[in-house]
Design a protein around this nucleic acid. Structure first.
Lengths: 232, 232
DNA sequence: CTGAAAGATTGACTTTCATCAATTGATTTT
DNA sequence: AAAATCAATTGATGAAAGTCAATCTTTCAG
């Protein structure tokens, strides 16, 4: 692993406070690999052999049941996934596939658990990370249960706008079919939902979104930090 | 606090491994109170001043947005709620109200955070607890996104049946209106959903459920441990 | 540059679900 | 026990969302 990557990973909140020796030990046991797009990295139900760190590219976490499937989240560099399964030594609850060419570090789960037992700074960092993940899912659950699909889309656009710097014009960073799945609707309905937001000044050209009237859209979307602010 | 309660709380996975001294210190700072039914214990958005332990009774965790609200979970003795907010020192994401007369221990959040910093066994127990909570919400998210309301009800009944000992006849432990909210539907639709399960041998009399044909119902519900098994 | 393939959109239709109103049933209060 | 209250159910209706098929658009390999 190149030194720059090593340092980038070390800077993650999860790893930044642990003893150098333990971090080095974790990294020594890690496999770093380049994967092409659309590769299934893990499959739900399998034992959690590896903890994953996305170094570049992006990864879709999804889940299936009875022939249906749904996107649960997207992991972008630099961050990690499947921490809870690793810690509990329990089966993966979600599958993961690369969305594009991606570079990923695979850390054997048993190493993570061993260092977790040995390094209490690492254990504490894991607490913070898990609490963050937990709260994110709760927010997403509230989004799903309390809002219509039109409201979810409106709020997603506002979040994405903020994430992209707050400009009036910005780009979606999802394929629309995946966005639909993340928002819990069909691609057809997403198309119609975009039209449904036209009265609030939203125009769409390909992946380019224009918020024509910020106030109108916000008045409709009623964003709420307890649902939409992913930083707390 | 009576000795028996003290010991019951101590036996929780969250507290069982920590140093006696630290547990005692936590309990010394705790307030134990009896609340009547329908009391709002905490309100979403407020700072997380107290970590809560339900000693008896039951508590509904719910959330509101734009005039709507939804039940997120029910907490039954002996267990805890609002751990993530306490640890992160972040606002509550959910409100909580007693469903019945309940006895609840309130532990100042700053005490929990202080002991978390001092006692690495406690920190480790928190990891396990949070990982469990996180995985539970993911399962619930999958339930919501991958299943129709009829399928959710069918699987809920199977889970509840198992929880009640596996007998053909068992009792719902929810008021139906709350069950509806937990399952993400209206009370009216829950009524119709029960009727929709009649062809699979389900009969309902008040809160008493009879599974007339286990195989039929399971064939329809297609329960899956990665969604329905809350123990892993 | 062209054609193939995949994604996105649109329209027509169906199913699912929420809402509203009325009624029934159960429980509590006086 | 009668009245009052609240939950549960039912029917009628409308809105929201899924499905299917056809068409349009974009992307990209050859």
């Amino acid at each position: 692993m190149p030194d720059s990557e090593y340092r980038d990973i070390r800077r993650l909140n999860l790893f930044s406070q642990m003893a150098e020796e333990n971090f080095t030990s974790l990294m020594r046991g890690a496999y770093v690999q380049n994967f092409p797009a659309q590769i299934e990295l893990i499959t739900e139900g399998e034992p959690s052999d590896f903890f994953h760190v996305v170094i570049s590219g992006s990864v879709d976490l999804f889940s299936s049941w009875n022939g249906r499937d749904t996107s649960m989240a997207t992991v972008r560099p630099i961050s990690t996934f499947i921490l809870a399964a690793t810690i509990k030594d329990a089966p993966y609850l979600m599958s993961a596939r690369t969305l594009e060419k991606s570079r990923i570090a695979l850390i054997p789960s048993q190493d993570v658990r061993a260092i977790f037992d040995a390094d209490s700074d690492f254990a504490r960092a894991i607490v913070t990370e898990l609490a963050q993940c937990y709260r994110s899912v709760i927010k997403s659950q509230k989004d799903l249960k309390l809002r219509t699909s039109l409201e979810r889309l409106a709020n997603y656009l506002l979040r994405q706008q903020r994430h992209a710097g707050g400009e009036t014009v910005f780009e979606l960073d999802f394929e629309k079919r995946r966005l639909a799945s993340v928002l819990g609707m069909t691609p057809e309905n997403l198309s119609r939902a975009f039209k449904g937001l036209q009265p609030y000044g939203v125009t769409v050209t390909g992946t380019r979104i224009t918020i024509g009237n910020q106030g109108d859209l916000e008045h409709f979307a009623k964003p709420n930090p307890l649902i939409d602010d992913f930083s707390t």
